[in-house]
Design a protein around this nucleic acid. Structure first.
Lengths: 273, 273
DNA sequence: TTGCTCCTCACGTCACGTGAGGTGGC
DNA sequence: TTGCTCCTCACGTCACGTGAGGTGGC
């Protein structure tokens, strides 16, 4: 009727180490401890408490929560509260894991489809708040050949107005809106100004770009060759089960007029679940 | 074009501590380290490698796996292998979490249904291998009133034969089979004998109980009052999404003829997913 | 001088698994 | 005496977060 730790462990199908751990935490104290040897002695009847402990652990509660439920003869409301919380946590984590699974499967499909290394280093992130001084104009369509000349003209004007305002341009940014169904694009070109003041001259405005969820990829090299990076980004979004929620932003983290191969551009596409 | 750790961390939306960690593990080395100060200096272009690292982390790979994939210019097969493995792991964990969710929801429903504390300390486990010497007989039905007399007679015979064989009885066990549709039950009564020899006398046989999945609950007190424990067990099995895969076993871990309130009995029902 | 950023340890996380080193009863 | 079980530390796990204590440039 009284068992050593090894016997009780076999009875409950747990390790002696676990029983010592539960003893340390006060979750399941042996009925008595031999004073001379320190041996822990358990009664068979304590199997009931051990099973209750294991049942609660099986629900995914941590040992501190279990202690509360084992000790206090838990009020039914307390138990309900804990279980509701756990329920919500599990639903959350299952959702997260399923999203992760979709991303893994997307990568696998991408591997089958193309032989070209894939390694789409696409990342989901939330943008930083970004205050820019910008100007905008309508371009005939997407693609470097349509946007390049328009953006260049705009950047000149914006720089001009920033300097005129006594400020200094920060990160260089472009972003786009689809005007209508006619295929034209409104292109916005600007520079981060943080908390500097830039006066609005009717053409150059100060704008806070909203904080949004985006899929992001880093493009190295000339912006002329950006198209495959965009294709990767769009494929990733679709395959991963997200959907487009707007038009892209481009962040020119590093720019060399003389050697475009050194350029580093971040492409961001707004997404929603 | 060269950034301190704080600037690079902001650029990549990670913490400086993470960058130091990745440096320590050799996942992402700064481009150079100031010899005098130990300052880590990064180039903007390293953002590409950081994003790739984050993308792989997002798939749930650990940092050691990521190191392999970042360094070796991974063979496409290696990458595919890792992703397939991850896919399987995620599917497994989602399945486990969903089963857990069902158990949590079962407990919540049980809380609503009954006011009587619930706290069904039911546990899913795999039985231990169990070799018993046993005898069997047909009883008119389930329930203590039907089984009690039959089992008592059987235990006498089995004990007798065990002692006669020079062995000593261990754990006391009962298990059941439904004979036919007539409501009768074949009851088996035995004692664990481990590796002792007990001779078969035509009525008492040595049997190895198979190792199976069971839902288990511990009943304290007289076996007369076992019915509510069985009801709990059956409700738990159904609510948790398992199904019955046979008839019960009873393990009499502690037995007092004089004081049945001290008895400790484990009830096991075979289950399958 | 005060703030800010950077540096290198080093502890803590959660529920144990796994030795290391030693003791007591068959 | 050899085996077995028990004991108490104490490290390791995984990817960092969070001080502590100190330094260097604006």
């Amino acid at each position: 009727v009284v068992l050593t730790i090894g016997q009780f462990a076999r009875l409950g199908q747990v390790s002696p180490r676990m029983l010592r751990h539960y003893d340390d935490l006060g979750l399941l104290r042996p009925e008595k401890v031999e004073p001379s040897s320190g041996y822990r002695l358990y009664r068979v009847a304590q199997l009931a408490r051990l099973q209750r402990l294991l049942a609660l652990r099986d629900l995914g509660l941590n040992l501190e929560q279990i202690r509360d439920l084992l000790d206090d003869e838990p009020s039914i409301d307390q138990l309900r509260g804990m279980l509701r919380l756990r329920q919500a946590q599990i639903e959350q984590s299952v959702g997260d894991e399923l999203a992760r699974l979709r991303r893994v499967e997307a990568r696998l499909r991408a591997l089958e489809g193309s032989q070209h290394m894939s390694a789409s280093d696409v990342v989901l992130k939330t943008t930083q708040p970004l205050r820019i001084a910008e100007a905008s104009a309508v371009a005939p369509g997407f693609g470097p050949e349509n946007l390049g000349p328009v953006l260049n003209r705009l950047y000149g004007k914006v720089i001009d107005q920033i300097v005129r305002s006594g400020a200094r341009p920060g990160l260089c940014v472009a972003w786009y809106e689809e005007s209508e169904d006619d295929g034209t694009v409104t292109a916005h070109a600007g520079f981060e100004i943080k908390d500097q003041t830039v006066t609005d001259n009717g053409e150059v405005h100060v704008v806070d770009l909203p904080v949004i969820q985006v899929a992001s990829v880093v493009h190295r090299g000339s912006i002329e060759n950006v198209t495959p990076a965009y294709e990767t980004l769009l494929r990733w979004i679709e395959d991963s089960g997200y959907r487009l929620a707007g038009r892209s932003r481009e962040l020119y983290h590093e720019w060399h007029d003389d050697d475009p191969s050194q350029n580093v551009t971040e492409l961001q596409m707004p997404v929603a679940a």
